[in-house]
Design a protein around this nucleic acid. Structure first.
Lengths: 261, 261
DNA sequence: TCAATCAGGGTTGTATGATAACACGACAAG
DNA sequence: CTTGTCGTGTTATCATACAACCCTGATTGA
């Protein structure tokens, strides 16, 4: 049988724990922009780790634009708008409303992207969409191959806009949505769903092929509504996950037995 | 007197150089997903740095989801879809068409957000928008305070959707757009522009206040069209400009300005 | 008095070596 | 063929030391 381990392995590294701890201090306002962080040595002792680990954590936060450091002075909290990367951390992803919100954002992008794709698609884009659709036809519904081709179809649509950022953003949001779905884990499959989903995709492709922007966005809207109901969105925000609070058992060697159950 | 000196230097850290070097290897396909990276020791010797520096670079790449490492085995290149952060590096930001593409993405978000905000805004949201507008009225056009309030207005609109991801994404994209504008450095100011821009914002606010979704998105569309022309982005066919003039000095200047605001 | 200089401590950046934890194949024993 | 052990290689972490740099305050010179 396929034993589904939760993919929360999420950094047994101490530096990850330190980084998210500091990150939380910033997010919750206990460290405001401009504030100076404690020295690396102080952080090392308070967290009970070596200064090296603290430095890895700081390197990570610095690359995210959250903090900024200068030799001889110290490390400081950066302005929020300086963030050079867009990140959605795992904890907020687990909240019940985050799935609905992400889905809404995804829909907003998809509908507009479909319309744009209909007016700009090239022949190669059409081929890519058809290939992804074929891949979905030959894979069992909900399997890894199916999901991969599903995402591939939507990415092909996004790339048909000839705007690379569309695909980049859409894939990013879609992946977060997919993680949310997996975290909820309440999806049920049926052959009926496979047929319905395929039909929705085919209608999207047909509209894009015909260069019908309005039709494409309408078909995409229908597809998203169907997908929402398939994952139990309308009234069913079934967030039955027990909130994973087994995490902070004080740093150090608490990470040993994270087999979870 | 705090005079801004040329001290930015943009990453004197060796770990930054190592990280971007590895990152480039991945981006250019010399390291494919699943490939194993050289050992930390090997990387340290080839780059001529200490193993510690390599570890900081790897910690950074790992936090970005680009690579994945396991104790006792090694570090491996992760799948592209595993990226947990969305990042737009300065090199692609420098390309001529990236500004147009980012602006298009921003517009797509803004128009939809405005419509959604009109149906969901609370009184507090309206107050936030009015405050931002007041801030724009009392600041000189194009000044740091003006830009801050401009962004604040759009963020207030996004927050009125009651979907936190909307604001997060919009601010991120808008900041990249602003960086692009600063990098191009071809903006010219006039009092006329200030009045026009303010008027556009006021019409957006009025529509949102009235709960008029269609009006809000229409007003936002007009505002974006105006903004596009103000930064020298003609409506449809301006992609031909080679514009390879943006050099590193310009880029650094833009980075410095962003750090100040 | 005032200004420049300089010494000292504190902080980050980097290097180096050592140890623990883990993965994996080789190899012998059953 | 299976199992247990062991050795090697790798990452994760610790500890220490030094270099580069910033800031402050005392000293010195005019």
């Amino acid at each position: 049988m396929t034993l589904k381990l939760d993919k929360v392995n999420r950094g047994p590294h101490l530096s990850t724990l330190v980084a998210s701890s500091i990150s939380r201090e910033i997010a919750q306002g206990r460290l405001k922009p401009g504030d100076q962080l404690p020295t690396e040595q102080a952080l090392a002792t308070t967290f009970g780790v070596s200064r090296n680990v603290v430095r890895e954590a700081i390197a990570r936060l610095r690359s995210e634009g959250r903090i900024w450091s200068q030799q001889g002075r110290g490390a400081f909290v950066a302005d929020a708008t300086n963030a050079t990367v867009l990140t959605i951390d795992y904890e907020t992803l687990q909240r019940a409303d985050s799935f609905r919100n992400l889905f809404e954002l995804r829909g907003m992008l998809e509908v507009q992207i479909a319309a744009l794709a209909a007016t700009r698609r090239s022949d190669a884009d059409i081929v890519a969409m058809e290939q992804a659709l074929d891949g979905m036809r030959t894979a069992p519904y909900g399997s890894v191959a199916w999901l991969k081709n599903d995402l591939g179809f939507h990415r092909a649509v996004a790339e048909a806009t000839q705007n690379p950022y569309m695909g980049q953003f859409l894939v990013f949001v879609s992946e977060r949505v997919r993680e949310s779905i997996l975290a909820a884990g309440n999806q049920q499959k049926s052959d009926d769903m496979a047929r319905t989903t395929l039909g929705e995709h085919e209608r999207i492709l047909a509209a894009i092929k015909a260069g019908d922007a309005k039709g494409a966005s309408a078909a995409m809207t229908r597809h998203l509504a169907g997908a929402a109901s398939r994952v139990g969105l309308p009234g069913g925000n079934a967030a039955a996950k027990p909130a994973s609070s087994a995490r902070h058992s004080r740093l150090r060697k608490a990470v040993r037995g994270q087999a979870a159950g």
